[in-house]
Amino acid sequence: MRLGLQVPNFTWPTEEGALGDTFALIAERAERAGLYSLWVMDHFFQIPVVGPAEHEMLEGWSALAFAAGRTNRIRLGTLVTGVTYRHPGLLVKTATTLDVLSHGRSYFGIGAAWYEEEHRGLGVPFPPLAERFERLEETLQIALQMWTGDERPFRGKHYQLERPLNSPRPVQQPHPPILIGGGGERKTLRLVARYADACNLFAYGGREQLLHKLEVLREHCETIGRPYEQIEKTTLSSLRLSRDGRNGTLSPAAAVDFFGGLAELGIDQAIFSLPNVHELEPFELLATEIVPQVEKIAVAGR
Rank of each mutant, 00 (worst) to 15 (best):
L35H: 13
L38V: 14
L38H: 09
W39E: 01
D42C: 05
H43N: 03
H43L: 08
P48C: 10
P48R: 09
P48D: 13
H55E: 15
E56V: 14
E56W: 06
E59F: 06
G60L: 12
G60A: 09
L64I: 04
A67S: 07
A68E: 14
G69R: 09
T71W: 12
N72S: 14
N72I: 09
N72P: 04
N72C: 07
R73T: 08
I74Y: 04
I74A: 12
R75D: 11
T78K: 05
G82Y: 11
G82P: 03
Y85N: 01
Y85K: 03
Y85A: 11
R86V: 04
P88H: 07
P88S: 05
P88V: 10
G89Y: 11
L91T: 01
L91D: 03
T94N: 14
A95P: 11
A95G: 15
T96P: 14
T96R: 01
T97E: 05
L98S: 08
V100T: 07
V100K: 02
L101W: 08
H103M: 13
H103C: 15
G104H: 01
F108T: 04
I110D: 07
I110L: 12
G111F: 08
W114P: 00
W114R: 06
Y115C: 03
Y115W: 12
E117I: 14
H119R: 05
H119Q: 02
R120T: 12
R120C: 02
G121P: 01
G121C: 03
L122G: 08
L122T: 03
P125T: 11
F126A: 10
F126Q: 06
F126V: 11
L129A: 15
R135P: 07
E137V: 06
E137N: 12
E137F: 14
T139C: 05
T139M: 07
I142Y: 10
Q145S: 13
W147K: 01
W147R: 02
T148P: 01
F154D: 09
F154K: 01
F154M: 08
G156A: 14
G156L: 15
Y159H: 00
L165P: 00
N166D: 15
S167N: 13
